[in-house]
Computed example of a mutant assay.
Amino acid sequence: MIRELSPELAKIAKNELNENPNQVPNDLENLKEWISKQPHLKARTDDQWLIALLRGCKFSLESVKKKLDLFYTLRSTAPDVTLRLKPIDPEFLKFLRLGTCFILPPSKNDLRPCVIFIRPGRYNPDKHSVADVMCILYYLVQILVMEYDIATVMGTQMVVDYENVTMNYLTQATPTMLGKLVAVSQESLPLRLKGSHHVNVPSGIEVIFKLISGFLSQKTKDRLKIYKNNEELLKSLPKEIMPVEYGGTAGTIDEIIDFWEKKVIEYRPWMEREMEFGTDESKRINSDNVDQGSFRKLDID
C-alpha cells in the first residue's frame, strides 16, 4: 500500500509528474510483473519504493525499468561506491556521525524540494574516500523516499560545502570515480534533482567541475551555482530549510545527524533485506535494458 497524498501534493504530482491515482495500482502491477520476468534481477517490490521510482521518472514505465535495472546493476558492478560502507555495519554509523552527508528532514507542510548537504572536508582523506560519502547518501535517500512523499514529488536540492577540502581530497576524484558517483547519485536513485549549490569552493576545484561537466546535460550545468561563502548561499536558499550553522532555523547539524542515526537503526531490518538485492549478469537476457557503461548525459528535471 502507498500513502495517500495531501490535496496540495497530489495536485503537484498530477501536473508535474503525470501521476494518476486511478492508474497507479496498474502501474505498480505492471512493474512488479516486469521485475518477476527478469531472471538476472533481484529487486525490492515494496509499493512505496516503486512509487518513488515512478515519480522520479514521471510515470514513464520504460524509464522506470531502466532506472531500476541500473540501480541494482550498480549494486553488483560498482560495489566500491554502493557497498563500500554497508548500513548494517557499525562503521556506517561512525562515518555518518562525522557529518559528511545529511538530509534536512522535510516538514510535511512545506512544499519545497528537500535539501541534501555534502561536506567532504569533514573526513580524513587518508582514512576515507569520497565514495564513503556517496554510500551515506545512497542509503539515506532510500529512507528519505520511503518516509517522505514530499521528497519524491517536490524533488531535492544539493548543497556541497568545500570547507577544509584540500588537494588530498581532489586527487580521489578520478574520472572513473566521478562517473560512478554521478551514475549512482543522479542516474539510479529515485530522485529529481532540482539544483546544486556549491559553497566555499577552493582553488583548483575548477578541474573537478570540468570533469563532472562532461557527464551533465546543459540544463544541469545551468542549475549549478557557486558561492563564495555561506552568506551568499543564504541569499538563494531560505533560512527555514538551512541548518543553524549556516544561518538557518532548521535545527543544528548535530540534531539532524542524530535524527538520521536513529532512522538508520530503525531501518536496520529493511537494510538487511536490501543487502540481498542486486543483479546476476550471467543471467541477463537483454543487455539493452540498462546502459551501464556510457553513463548517459544527465538531466536535472
Rank of each mutant, 00 (worst) to 15 (best):
P106C: 07
T100K: 10
L68P: 00
P125I: 10
F92Q: 01
V115D: 05
L98R: 06
C101P: 01
T77F: 02
D89I: 06
P87V: 07
L68N: 01
Y72V: 00
P105L: 14
S107V: 07
L68W: 00
M134L: 11
G99P: 11
H128C: 10
L137C: 14
L83G: 09
R119K: 15
D110F: 11
P87K: 12
S107P: 08
P79W: 11
L70N: 02
L137V: 10
T77K: 12
D110Q: 07
L61I: 05
Y72K: 00
L85I: 03
K127F: 07
T77D: 09
L68E: 01
F92V: 00
L111S: 09
I118F: 11
V115M: 13
P113F: 14
T73M: 10
I103F: 13
R84W: 06
T73S: 09
L137D: 07
S107Q: 10
A131V: 14
G121Y: 09
K86E: 07
N124G: 08
L137H: 14
R97W: 08
Y72C: 02
S129V: 11
Y138P: 04
P113E: 15
P106H: 05
Y123L: 15
D132P: 04
P120C: 02
V64Q: 05
S129Q: 12
T77Q: 09
L70C: 01
E62T: 05
A78W: 08
P120H: 08
L98T: 11
K127R: 12
D80H: 13
Y138D: 12
P106Y: 06
Y139W: 05
R122Q: 14
I136D: 01
V115A: 10
A131H: 13
R84S: 06
C101L: 11
C114D: 07
D132G: 02
H128K: 04
D80V: 12
Y123N: 04
F92P: 01
T77N: 13
L74D: 01
L98F: 12
I88Q: 08
E62A: 03
L85K: 01
M134Y: 06
K65Q: 10
P120K: 03
K94N: 13
P90R: 06
